[in-house]
Amino acid sequence: MASVEFKGKSFEIDEDGFLQRFEDWSPEWVDYVKESEGIKELSDEHQKVIEFLQDYYKKNGIAPMVRILSKVTGYKLKHIYELFPSGPGKGACKMAGLPKPTGCV
């Protein structure tokens, strides 16, 4: 499995660039991933989405459905794509350190 070094931290990732272990997440991870996800500067809105995803995952062991993400953050899907161009799954979940989405994608 590939591992990357960034700002003194080491992250193990899969081919799609998702963290192998949620526990490895640190703020440096977000910094490392953002460019490949088409994000220049991280705003409070980005943070809010990431924090909610992490809270939800810690509590429920899964990623929230899109409409729950929208409801809780108050961001419409359109705005979530403005924040994370590759969308809530590939973009936000990856940056939040959640496991890779599965199923018939």
Binding site: E15, G38, Y81, P85, S86, G87, K90, K100, V105
Partner: peptide
């Protein structure tokens, strides 16, 4: 083929089926 795969293009949440 390995399990799953999440790739795509910016702006869209689907359209490409990743495979390794």
């Amino acid at each position: 083929w390995k399990h799953g795969g999440i790739v795509g293009v910016f702006g869209y949440g689907g359209g490409v089926i990743g495979r390794y």
